[in-house]
C-alpha cells in the first residue's frame, strides 16, 4: 500500500471538488478499494472519505419508484420494506453477493464502482491491461475460468463481479451522478458500466470529480422477479453465471421479459433484443432456446470458460421456465 492523503469533507460540493484531480478516489465502505490498495493495485494519492455526507436515505419517489441513497448499505437496502415487497429481485441479488460482513459495509454507490476484475488484475506481478494499460492480458492464455464470453476484447476478458447492479439493470434503474457546479446527471445502470474495448482501464462512465449520489428504481411493474446465481459454493463466491429477470404473463403469453446477466461480461449484460423476441410468445422450451441463441450468438469462450456458454443457456431456460410456469 502506498502512503496517501486522506480528507473527510462535510458537503457534497466539497467532496466533488476534492475528487476532481485524477489521482484521488472517493471511499465509502471501502470493501473493494482497501483490498486493492493493500495489493497496490490501486494507488490513489488522496482518499476522499464521503461517509460524512448524508446520502444513506432510501425514499419513495414522486412517480411511485424508489430512490436509494449512494451511502445506503447493501444490508439496509436488502432489508428495506419496499425493496423486499416491490423489488424482491434487488433484495435477492444483494443477498446473493459477498458475505454479511461485507454487505454491512458496502454501499450502493461503492458497489456500482467496484472494479471489474480478475486474478491477473489483482496480482501486480502479472500483466494486465486494465491495471497497467499496454502490459498485456494474462488471462487470455491463462486461467480464464471466471472470465467473460460476451463483449470481450483482445485487451481484456474480465467479468463484472457484482450482483446488485445486475438486478438493477433488469429493473432499469438510473444512476444519479453529480459534479461540482453542474446539474445532476442520470445514467441508466445498463449504460453505466463499459465494455473493455481498447480502454479496459475504464470500468464505467464516471468521470473524475463525479460522485454517485443515488440510484432510482422506476415504479414497480407487474411480473415475477427472479435472481438466479450459479456458483460452486453457496456464499462468498462470484457468479459463474447469474440471471436477473422480471417476467410477466398475460393470457398465456409473455408480456414482459426484462433480463440481465452477470458473470459473462465486463458489465452487467443486457440485450434489448431478448425482450423483443420473447414478448408476445407462448413460453416453451423452443422459445427459451431461441432466446438463448440470440443472447449467445456472439459468445466466445477462452478454453477454461467455454462451459459458460451452455451454462448460460441452461440458466436462462431454467429462469424463464420458473418465471412462466413451464415444465422443462
Amino acid at each position: 500500500m502506498r502512503p496517501f492523503q486522506y480528507a473527510r469533507p462535510d458537503s457534497l460540493d466539497h467532496a466533488t471538488q476534492l475528487t476532481a484531480p485524477e489521482d484521488t478516489m472517493a471511499i465509502a465502505g471501502g470493501t473493494n478499494l482497501i483490498d486493492l490498495m493493500k495489493l497496490q493495485v490501486e494507488t490513489p494519492q488522496e482518499l476522499i472519505d464521503i461517509n460524512r455526507l448524508t446520502m444513506g436515505e432510501i425514499a419513495d419517489t414522486d412517480d411511485g419508484g424508489l430512490r436509494i441513497g449512494a451511502l445506503a448499505t447493501n444490508t439496509a437496502t436488502a432489508a428495506h420494506d419496499r425493496v423486499r415487497s416491490d423489488y424482491p429481485l434487488l433484495a435477492r441479488a444483494i443477498l446473493a453477493g459477498a458475505t454479511q460482513q461485507l454487505r454491512n459495509k458496502a454501499t450502493t454507490g461503492g458497489n456500482l464502482c467496484q472494479r471489474t476484475r480478475c486474478y491477473y488484475f489483482t496480482n501486480i506481478d502479472q500483466p494486465c491491461n486494465k491495471r497497467d494499460p499496454g502490459s498485456g492480458c494474462g488471462a487470455i492464455k491463462g486461467i480464464a475460468r471466471l472470465h467473460a464470453i460476451l463483449g470481450t476484447s483482445n485487451h481484456c476478458i474480465a467479468t463484472y463481479p457484482g450482483d446488485m447492479a445486475v438486478a438493477m439493470a433488469a429493473l432499469d434503474a438510473q444512476v444519479l451522478i453529480t459534479r461540482e457546479g453542474e446539474k445532476e446527471r442520470t445514467v441508466p445502470v445498463r449504460d453505466f458500466h463499459r465494455l473493455p474495448g481498447d480502454t479496459p482501464e475504464k470500468d464505467n462512465v464516471l468521470e473524475a470529480g463525479e460522485i454517485i449520489t443515488g440510484v432510482t428504481l422506476p415504479a414497480p411493474v407487474e411480473g415475477k422477479q427472479i435472481y438466479r446465481k450459479v456458483r460452486e459454493r453457496s456464499s462468498y463466491a462470484f457468479a459463474l453465471v447469474s440471471v436477473a429477470a422480471v417476467v410477466a404473463m398475460t393470457d398465456g403469453r409473455i408480456s414482459r421479459a426484462n433480463l440481465a446477466f452477470g458473470g459473462i461480461a465486463h458489465k452487467p449484460w443486457h440485450d434489448p433484443r431478448l425482450s423483443e423476441l420473447l414478448v408476445g410468445e407462448t413460453p416453451s422450451a423452443a422459445v427459451f432456446d431461441k432466446a438463448a441463441d440470440l443472447l449467445l450468438e456472439d459468445a466466445q469462450g477462452y478454453g477454461e470458460n467455454d462451459f459458460k456458454i451452455p451454462l448460460t443457456r441452461r440458466a436462462l431456460a431454467a429462469t424463464l421456465a420458473d418465471a412462466t410456469g413451464v415444465e422443462l
Binding site: N123, G142, R233
Partner: peptide, 16 residues
C-alpha cells in the same frame, strides 16, 4: 465440490 489450486499454464504462478 469446491477446492482447487489453479496454476497459470504460462508462468506457473498460483492464480487463486
Amino acid at each position: 465440490l469446491t477446492e482447487a489450486l489453479h496454476f497459470d499454464p504460462v508462468d506457473g504462478h498460483l492464480v487463486n
